[in-house]
């Protein structure tokens, strides 16, 4: 069960679209590790290098709008982003992130409270996000969505549901 995340903040604005997160020219890449090298490249060319494992993105409204390309979520997850906090997520990005096992928090207040570079603590069990400036509560995700996250993504979740043993997972 996802409990607590502590991470350094990257603060982004509204409408961070999928072409900013993962430009279309990299779509033929199918290896997640290679995708990670281009995460948020449209925002800052050197962003993938600056990310450290466990970092947190705090963004404005409509994060991940645009394309259905799940590489947007996959690249962020494999670049080391532990959690994305946003005022709202676009529908398809929301699903893609959950399916990749990337934790999401919907919070209207967080963006106002955090400073770029500071460390925030996200407590999923209590639904609390703490910054230097103060704390804010966020609503829990639906139970079934949390179930997918807890299993580490939709593939693992489906394997569990279908009763396929873990042993033959890597082909």
């Amino acid at each position: 069960m996802l409990k607590k995340i502590k991470g350094r903040v990257w603060k982004l604005g509204n409408n961070i679209d999928t072409d900013i997160i993962y430009p279309g020219k990299y779509l033929p890449i199918i290896e997640a590790k290679e995708m990670a090298l281009h995460a948020l490249e449209g925002y800052d060319k050197d962003f993938p290098k600056k990310i450290k494992k466990g970092d947190v993105i705090v963004a404005g409204a409509n994060f991940g709008c645009g394309s259905s390309r799940e590489q947007a979520a996959t690249s962020l997850k494999h670049a080391g982003i532990a959690c994305i906090v946003a005022k709202s997520f676009s529908r398809i990005f929301f699903r893609n992130a959950i399916n990749q096992g990337l934790a999401l928090v919907i919070s209207k207040e967080a963006h106002r409270l955090v400073k770029e570079g500071e460390e925030v603590t996200i407590d999923f069990a209590k639904g609390k996000l703490s910054t230097q400036k103060g704390e804010t509560d966020f609503p829990p995700l639906p139970e079934m969505v949390m179930g997918i996250l807890d299993d580490g993504g939709l593939i693992a979740h489906t394997r569990k549901r279908l009763g396929i043993a873990k042993a033959d997972s890597k082909q």
Binding site: S67, S68, E70, I92, N96, N99, G153, L154
Partner: peptide
Amino acid sequence: TDSHTTSYGCIGAVSTGIGATEMAV
């Protein structure tokens, strides 16, 4: 697996986009 899957609404169908992993499932 394309966001513009909503287009099929033009003939009175209901359709939406999803990601690749979701489609695999």
